[in-house]
Amino acid sequence: MARQKLTSRILEKAKARAMGLQAIDPNISFGDACDLQKMMQLIETLSQKLDAHNQALEVVDTSTTELNVMEKSLNQLSQRILLGVACRYGNDSSEYKIAGGVRKSDRIRKARATRIKKAKAKSALLKNEV
């Protein structure tokens, strides 16, 4: 999932305000470095930083996508190799276990008695509800 790109409402508001101030007086100043030129510089700096940040997010998104593709590729190859080991040696062999598989004889299956107990308990609950 792509990361959300940042936008700045404050930046947009400041740009609109600066346009209005330019219409009034392009050299407007209120002293103490509180003038239109300073505001325009800050707007430009923030705009550049925001663009740089969003470009960095793009790089991260691209890298993440590449990593995901590589992981899927490696997973598929790993599964194919395990299937190859199972084909050559069998899925109940020690080689299959060494390659990372679970031997067929080692798989744990639910006992029939457990399933019967669960079925009886479920039917008892249904009778109590009615």
Score class of each variant (00 low, 15 high):
Ser78Pro: 04
Arg88Val: 10
Tyr96Gly: 11
Tyr96Phe: 15
Glu95Lys: 06
Leu74Asn: 08
Lys97Phe: 04
Lys118Trp: 03
Gln79Leu: 14
Gln22Ile: 09
Ser73Pro: 05
Glu44Arg: 06
Glu71Cys: 10
Met1Cys: 08
Gly20Gln: 15
Arg112Ile: 07
Lys127Phe: 06
Arg109Val: 07
Asp35His: 08
Ala113Ser: 15
Ser47Cys: 00
Leu82Trp: 06
Ala86Leu: 00
Thr64Ala: 09
Gly20Tyr: 07
Ala121Val: 01
Ile28Tyr: 14
Gly31Pro: 01
Arg9Pro: 01
Gly20His: 14
Asp25Gln: 14
Met39Pro: 00
Lys15Cys: 05
Lys110Glu: 12
Gly31His: 12
Leu126Ser: 14
Arg109Asp: 02
Leu21Tyr: 01
Arg9Asn: 00
Leu125Cys: 03
Lys127Ser: 13
Gln22Val: 10
Glu58Arg: 07
Lys5Ile: 12
Thr7Gly: 02
Asn91Asp: 02
Tyr96Arg: 12
Lys97Leu: 06
Thr62Lys: 14
Ile28Met: 10
Ala14Val: 00
Asn128Glu: 11
Gln79Lys: 15
Arg3Pro: 08
Glu95Ser: 06
Asn91Pro: 01
Leu82Pro: 04
Lys110Gly: 12
Glu44Leu: 14
Asn54Lys: 05
Ala124His: 05
Ala86Pro: 00
Ser93His: 13
Arg17Leu: 01
Gly20Asp: 09
Lys110Asn: 05
Ala119Phe: 05
Met1Gly: 15
Asp61Cys: 07
Thr64Met: 10
Ser63Met: 04
Arg109Trp: 02
Thr7Glu: 01
Lys5Met: 06
Ile116His: 02
Asp92Thr: 13
Gln55His: 12
Met1Ser: 15
Leu77Thr: 15
Ala2Arg: 05
Arg9Cys: 00
Thr45Phe: 06
Pro26Cys: 05
Arg112Glu: 00
Thr114Asn: 06
Ala23Phe: 13
Ala52Asn: 09
Arg103Asn: 08
Ala2Glu: 15
Arg109Ala: 05
Ala99Glu: 09
Ile81Thr: 11
Gln55Tyr: 13
Lys15Val: 00
Ala86His: 02
Val102Trp: 13
Asp106Trp: 11
Ala56Phe: 10
Arg107Phe: 08
Ser93Gly: 09
Glu44Lys: 12
Thr7Cys: 02
Arg112Lys: 03
Leu126Gly: 02
Thr62Ala: 14
Asp106Ile: 07
Arg109Glu: 03
Gln76Lys: 14
Leu50Thr: 05
Asp35Pro: 02
Gln37Leu: 09
Lys13Asp: 00
Ala121Met: 15
Ala16Cys: 09
Thr64Leu: 12
Glu95Asn: 08
Ser73Ala: 10
Ser29Asn: 01
Lys120Glu: 05
Lys13Thr: 00
Arg80Pro: 08
Gln37Ala: 03
Leu126Gln: 14
Glu71Arg: 12
Ala99Leu: 11
Val85Leu: 07
Leu42Ser: 14
Gly84Tyr: 01
Asp106Gln: 11
Asp25His: 11
Asp32Gln: 05
Asp92Ala: 04
Asn27Gly: 04
Asp35Thr: 03
Leu57Met: 05
Leu67Pro: 06
Asn68Val: 08
Ala2Pro: 03
Ala111His: 03
Met1Val: 11
Thr62Asn: 11
Phe30Gly: 01
Arg115Trp: 02
Ile98Lys: 14
Ala124Gln: 07
Ala23Ile: 06
Ile81Arg: 14
Ala113Gln: 13
Arg103Pro: 07
